[in-house]
Structure formats: structure tokens, C-alpha cells
Design a binder for these strands. Structure first.
Lengths: 135, 135
DNA sequence: GTAGCTGCAAACTCTTTGCAACTCT
DNA sequence: AGAGTTGCAAAGAGTTTGCAGCTAC
């Protein structure tokens, strides 16, 4: 059964190989923001022949197509997630946990700011880093 | 003559070596957001004996102390700037030019969002990517 | 004097790539 | 069949680190 993402890959003239299907499914199932290594680990659980090189190549491809969002939080490696709905992140500085949030206000203001500076907004990233408030 | 940053380093119990002074001055003079390599290049122009290792070590130190802000725009290397006033960045997707801006509204909203999620804001990063609007 | 800093070069981590074999269409 | 994709291993880029000598305090 072909999901939305496989559909979009097909439209982009990407061959739907077994490896790509597995990687897409891994991302589709992920409730978090896995690193490349984590994607490989999960992909290997479904098809042990998948290599790191393919994971990197596939994630780069999906990034170029805009199907995936690449994050570089304050770590020295990238994390990925499917590009479903636009949202931002709050990272727990103690645990590294990532919380997603949306904000209509932010959307409005960032567009306003870009326009004031003479630019049309193409993309944006807002990462908050915080400490949990104890009760 | 000791500038503000040298003062703050002294308070942090950092030995004020010639190399550190040079690197601080390079950052202080910078109107842009230089990469490590660029910092080295500018530092070497003032003291040719300065090494890459020292630049990395110094920038990491300054980052830990919060004297410097480390950026990872959509490139695969870091850029630094002195931490003077809190501001955000708009990156021209065509030229790579970086424009700084401030926004009271954003400051207010981001704190509000963090609080709503049960967090106290420690840090934050907002990078807009845009295309220049032609007239 | 001594704890801390430095340059050098080697090591490390994450990511990319050349190549021959393989696979989707 | 043929262009695109893969795994492997080697290479690349950016960054870190062990060490012996040097320097600020």
C-alpha cells in the first residue's frame, strides 16, 4: 500500500526502492526527531541490509524535495522529521527532549519582520531552549 | 587598554594571553558573523603564530561563558559573534548575507510559549530565510 | 613556581563519494 | 535494457585532543 510520501516521491521521479520505502516508513512512524544513526538503526530492524550511505543519500534527497525537515539543534549531528505541519521546537536543556509547538502569532510576526526588511519569507526556524519549571 | 570583554574574561578566571586578546579583538571588530576559519585568518593577520587549535579552544570557552554566540545556519560549519545584544537573523537564501534584527514582540511571545509548556526560557534562536523582494 | 595555555599533529565524528554490482521501471 | 540505486570502504570536512614546551599570574 502506497502512502502519501511514496506518492510524492513517485511524482518527483524517484525510484521507489525497498530501502527508500523502509526509510520513509521509519520516518512516518517516528514520534520523535531521529538522528541519521537512529534512522539507520530503525531501518535495519526492518531490513538489515540497509547501509548508512543509503540513509544519508535518502535523507538528503528527501530534504531537497522538502519532504523532510533537517534540524541542527545544539548538537553536532542532524536530526530529521517528516515535513507535515509547520511547527517549532522547545528543547529541554537538561534532558534533550524535544517538544513541538505551533503559534499563529509567531507566524504572523515573522512574515511581518521579513517584509519590513525587504524580504519574502522562504523558511524559518525557531528553537527555544528551556529548563522545566518545578512545581 | 582592557576592553569590556577582557574584563569579563578576567572575572571568569581566564588568563589573558596574547592569543585570547587577539581573538577577542577580532570578534569585537567584526561587523559580520565569521566562521572559525575566518576568525583564524583575521587573528593570524595580527599575530601569525596563532593556531587553529587555539581558535577552536578559545571560541568554545567563550561560548561556554556566554560571551559569544555560536550559530549554525544551514551550512556545515559554525559561525560566531560577540554576545552583545539579543537579536535574531534573516539569511538571504541567494547571497548568504546575514541581517540582524530585534523584535520586542518575539521576545514576549517566546517567553509566553515556553511558560505555557512548563518551561523557563534559557536561550532561543530564530533564523528567518528569505528572498529579497524586487521593486 | 605552577597551573593553565599553546602549537603541532594525530585522532575523532559526522557526512560524502567512487566504484562495481544490482534493481526498479 | 538502461538509468538510477545500493553497499562497501575510503576519503572529506570540521572539530577535538594528547603531549611537551611555554607563559601569565
Amino acid at each position: 500500500m502506497m502512502n502519501d510520501f511514496e506518492q510524492r516521491c513517485a511524482e518527483a521521479d524517484l525510484k521507489m526502492t525497498g530501502q527508500r520505502r523502509v526509510i520513509l516508513n521509519v520516518l512516518d512512524d517516528a514520534q520523535d526527531h531521529p538522528s541519521v544513526e537512529e534512522v539507520l538503526k530503525r531501518a535495519k530492524a526492518r531490513d538489515s541490509s540497509i547501509s548508512m550511505a543509503t540513509v544519508y543519500r535518502t535523507l538528503n534527497l528527501l530534504d531537497e524535495l522538502g519532504l523532510v525537515v533537517r534540524h541542527e539543534f545544539k548538537e553536532n549531528f542532524a536530526r530529521y522529521e517528516l515535513n507535515v505541519t509547520q511547527h517549532h521546537h522547545l528543547i529541554d536543556v537538561d534532558t534533550g527532549a524535544v517538544i513541538e509547538f505551533q503559534s499563529k502569532e509567531i507566524e504572523k510576526i515573522k512574515r511581518k519582520i521579513a517584509k519590513k526588511l525587504g524580504y519574502q519569507l522562504v523558511e524559518c526556524r525557531l528553537d527555544l531552549y528551556g529548563k522545566k519549571i518545578e512545581k
